[in-house]
Structures are given as C-alpha cells and as structure tokens.
Computed example of a mutant assay.
Amino acid sequence: MPTASRQPTAGSSAPRSGIARPPAVMVLSGILILQALGVLGTAAASVLVIGAGALNVGAQIFLVVLYVLAAVWIGATGVGVWAGRPWTRAAVVVIELFAVILSISFFSAGNVSTGLVFLLPAAAALLLMFTRRAAEHLAGVERRADR
C-alpha cells in the first residue's frame, strides 16, 4: 500500500520540517530571534532597576511583564517563520513597523545610534519578508528543482 505524502498543502498550518529553507527565511528568522533576545535583555535590565526612576513599582513591574510578553511573541514569530507558518507574515510586518516607529522616536530625540539599532534590522526584515522565496516558503508553495 503506497504511503501518502506528508507534505502539507498550500496554506496548511502543519510544520514543514523537511523543506529546505531559503536563505532569506533563515536570515529573517535570525533577525527576529535576535530582536526577541534584545527585548528579553531589556526586561532583565528593567528588573534590576525596579524601585528606581520616575515610575512607581507597579508600573515598572507591568513594563517588565510587557517586555517579556513582547519577547515571547517576537520569538514565536521567528520560530514560526522558520517553520513556514503563514500567520507569521502579518506578525512580522507589525513587529517591524513598531521597530521603525520606535527608531523614529530615537532619531527625533537625537539618539541616532539607538535609532539605527532599531531601524536597520527592521528594514532588513521587511525587505526579506517580501522576497519571492520567503513569500513562497510562508505560503507553503513547494519549490521544484526545474524552476
């Protein structure tokens, strides 16, 4: 009895672990994981200064929780991009647009270096997101060798 192919159809939410990933997908996933680690580092640094600063302790704890949730969301999106999940397309755009907006606020405040730290990976991720191979990977389209 022949076995059916276990490859998901286009738009399926099943993981595609045996699929070769395009370089754009690998870099995009790496950018997202690094961004998640950066946000997690910000959460850890914020924990160390709870009790100091202009915000009260409750607000500082709330911000730490938001940082952790954001890091989990960004990390899950990076893993989803790696796995070829279609839902990650919108998540990547939202994450990177937030990063662009944050970079503009840093530029406006005169902190160009921090603005660039936010802007450059976001711009790279947005450009990679819209490459043909990344779009095909996230849409579940299988690449044939003859194309």
Score class of each variant (00 low, 15 high):
residue 1 M to E: 15
residue 3 T to E: 12
residue 5 S to W: 03
residue 7 Q to E: 15
residue 9 T to N: 07
residue 9 T to H: 07
residue 9 T to E: 12
residue 14 A to K: 02
residue 15 P to T: 04
residue 19 I to D: 10
residue 23 P to L: 00
residue 25 V to N: 04
residue 25 V to T: 14
residue 26 M to R: 06
residue 28 L to G: 00
residue 28 L to M: 05
residue 29 S to P: 08
residue 29 S to Q: 05
residue 31 I to E: 12
residue 32 L to W: 03
residue 37 L to R: 01
residue 37 L to C: 10
residue 40 L to G: 10
residue 40 L to K: 01
residue 44 A to E: 15
residue 44 A to C: 06
residue 44 A to Y: 10
residue 45 A to M: 08
residue 45 A to T: 01
residue 45 A to P: 00
residue 46 S to N: 15
residue 48 L to K: 07
residue 48 L to R: 09
residue 49 V to A: 14
residue 50 I to D: 14
residue 51 G to Q: 09
residue 52 A to K: 14
residue 56 N to F: 08
residue 58 G to E: 15
residue 60 Q to A: 07
residue 64 V to Y: 04
residue 70 A to W: 11
residue 71 A to E: 10
residue 72 V to M: 02
residue 73 W to A: 15
residue 74 I to E: 13
residue 76 A to H: 08
residue 77 T to N: 02
residue 78 G to A: 06
residue 83 A to Y: 08
residue 85 R to A: 14
residue 87 W to A: 12
residue 89 R to I: 15
residue 90 A to R: 05
residue 91 A to Q: 09
residue 92 V to E: 00
residue 94 V to Y: 07
residue 96 E to C: 09
residue 96 E to M: 09
residue 98 F to Y: 13
residue 98 F to P: 02
residue 99 A to T: 07
residue 100 V to H: 06
residue 107 F to S: 09
residue 115 G to Y: 00
residue 117 V to Q: 13
residue 119 L to P: 01
residue 122 A to E: 03
residue 123 A to Y: 05
residue 123 A to N: 00
residue 126 L to D: 07
residue 128 L to M: 06
residue 132 R to G: 07
residue 134 A to M: 02
residue 137 H to N: 00
residue 137 H to P: 02
residue 138 L to A: 06
residue 139 A to H: 01
residue 141 V to K: 04
residue 141 V to Q: 04
residue 143 R to A: 15
residue 145 A to T: 14
residue 145 A to H: 09
